[in-house]
Amino acid sequence: MTEYSVEAHGLTKYFEGFTAVDHVSLEVPAGSIYGVLGPNGAGKTTTLRMMLGIVDPDAGTSRLLGNHKPQSVRSRVGYLPEERGLYPGMKAREAIAFMGALRGLDWAEGRRRAAIFMAELGLERVIDEKIRKMSKGMAQMVQLIGSIIHAPDLIVLDEPFSGLDPVNQERLEMLVRRERERGATILFSTHVMAHAERLCDRIAIIARSARRFEGTVDQARALLPMQVRYTPRDAGGDVAASLPPGAERRGDDWHFAIRDDGVEPLLARITASGHGVAGLSITRPGLHDAFVHIVRQVDAGFAADARADAIEESAA
């Protein structure tokens, strides 16, 4: 196993003149859980498909499990595509075994592993139920199990949480963690930040077809200042004078961001003001806040460019 299970450099894809993916580079450490995050239509699925060799890039290169030819290592990869699809007449156990057989797993062994997986996830009651009789979410869990039944070294999941109820989302998170403990690398795309915040060792954020951030969840959250909620004991007089510029009053509380000089100067000003402290909480913004901040910055940049182009055209 190489240091990175997936290496992509400058991947680019055009569709009828539209840039779907614009020079995206990613390196997924072996044995990690890595999230590719972005709004709908950002280019996440196309990026994953180029990495897997399903779609040829118009520019750029990639390596999968150390190999430049993804098809040569397909038996070591488990892939759950965004578009779900199972044979509706198959029973769950047979559907899972069939998917394993496509990756070289013995049929009888696939059926045996299917029973173990289904029991561990609390799904044994539907193991012999036909796919057509299952709910969408339950069928999706069956396809997920089928994607990893052959114990792949790399698991790629495209929007795996979409369509799952909270119980099955929890089951999926448990499965992802267990597969990482087994030694697998998990790469998944999502636009739901809560799952990425709980699971991922590293993340990449793609917006407007390009990679806009890469790093740990904590590094993403650190892009925004910590937030303070302060409740004075004595609200009389000019409370705002002791607080940073931009402090906003909401009922009895004041909300504001901590400035670069840190917490201690803030506490000193509040103490010196004589207003006292009835309540004080300091929280770091979550991944959702960082994600929205990054995407809005990108959108604002595009809007500014569009306005500049319009002005230039009108002047011409």
Rank of each mutant, 00 (worst) to 15 (best):
G10D: 12
Y14H: 14
G17M: 02
T19W: 00
V24A: 08
G31M: 06
G31T: 01
I33S: 06
Y34C: 10
L37N: 05
G43V: 01
T46E: 07
T47H: 05
M51A: 01
S62G: 10
G66R: 10
H68T: 15
H68M: 05
P81W: 12
R84Q: 05
R84C: 00
G85K: 05
A97S: 02
M99V: 00
D106I: 01
R113A: 10
I116S: 11
A119K: 13
L121F: 03
I131Y: 15
Q140F: 01
V142W: 08
I148R: 07
I149R: 13
A151C: 04
P166F: 13
R171I: 06
L175T: 13
V176E: 01
V176C: 04
R177C: 06
R177T: 02
R182D: 06
S189R: 10
T190H: 06
H191E: 06
H191Q: 09
D201F: 00
A204M: 03
F213A: 07
A220M: 11
P225G: 12
M226C: 10
R233A: 15
D234L: 03
G236I: 04
P244G: 07
A247S: 13
R249Y: 14
R250V: 12
R250A: 15
D253R: 02
I258T: 04
E264V: 07
E264I: 07
R269I: 07
I270E: 07
A272C: 06
G274Y: 12
G274M: 12
G276Y: 10
L280C: 03
T283H: 15
R284Y: 06
H288G: 12
V292N: 12
V292Q: 12
Q297V: 01
Q297D: 11
V298E: 15
A304N: 14
A308M: 02
E312T: 06
E312M: 13
A316V: 10
